[in-house]
Computed example of a mutant assay.
Amino acid sequence: MPEVIFPGPEGRLEGRYHAQKSKDAPIAIVLHPHPQFGGTMNNLVVYNLHYAFHNMGFNVLRFNFRGVGRSQGEYDQGIGELSDAASALDYLQSMNQNAKHCWVAGFSFGAWIGMQLLMRRPEITGFISVSPPANMYDFSFLAPCPASGLVINGTSDRVAPPRDTHVLVEKLQEQKGITVTHSEVDGAGHFFEDPHMEKMIGTVTDYVTRRLGETSR
């Protein structure tokens, strides 16, 4: 497992990085769920997203937010975690200066952080937002949402109820110039426990593969 340590705003951050042989491979970072509720970069959704992107030819990095695992610092209500994500993207870009595509994927709390990063970094060309907690966090900063992406959730999610996700998606889909695709996994809960993980990852893979194919024409 390729462990990496890179500088963050409050000290070192711990991550896992998988590279491709191609010098111009696309890049992606994957953001984990809430640090105060057991969220780490080894969460199964995050782990599976990481390998899905790697299998699609991406240089991919997942990491622990401040105060998690070997990452230094303390939980900072999402403000510091957004800075951590920006540092992770800086680190990934420094090693992959020829990358033509840059994606961000996040799960739950990580989806909220990922969408904020999207607003700050115009080089991000696509996003995957898994189980975004629209009932807990304000997503109104997405005005307008600067890139197209996929929102995916389970129909039996009790942590981030589907009705709140629907409201978020409807607002995003009203915006011009981008396309926000929404997919639901029937019967899946917040964490996509088996047998739903495979369906979720398959949907993400199909979506990203299609987007990459469109841009390569």
Rank of each mutant, 00 (worst) to 15 (best):
I152E: 03
Q36V: 07
T181S: 14
V204S: 05
K21E: 14
V169W: 08
A134I: 11
T205V: 14
V60R: 14
G69K: 12
V169N: 07
A88P: 05
E198H: 07
S156H: 13
H166G: 13
A147Q: 10
V45G: 02
V185W: 08
N64K: 08
I152P: 07
K23I: 04
E10K: 12
M200Q: 07
G78K: 08
Q36D: 06
L44W: 14
S108W: 06
R62A: 14
L49V: 09
K23T: 08
P132W: 00
G73Y: 01
K171I: 06
I5L: 09
D194S: 14
C102R: 05
K176R: 15
V46T: 11
L61E: 04
R62Q: 15
G187D: 04
L150G: 05
R70T: 08
E3A: 15
L118H: 02
I5K: 04
T181Y: 13
A19Q: 13
D138E: 03
Y137N: 09
V4F: 01
V4I: 10
Y47N: 15
G187M: 06
P26F: 07
H166D: 14
E123W: 05
R62V: 14
P146A: 00
E10R: 10
H166N: 13
F141C: 07
H190S: 07
N48L: 03
S140V: 06
V60K: 14
D206A: 06
S183V: 06
F53A: 04
P9D: 01
D84F: 00
G69N: 10
Q77Y: 11
V180R: 13
L31F: 08
A52Q: 06
N59V: 12
I29L: 12
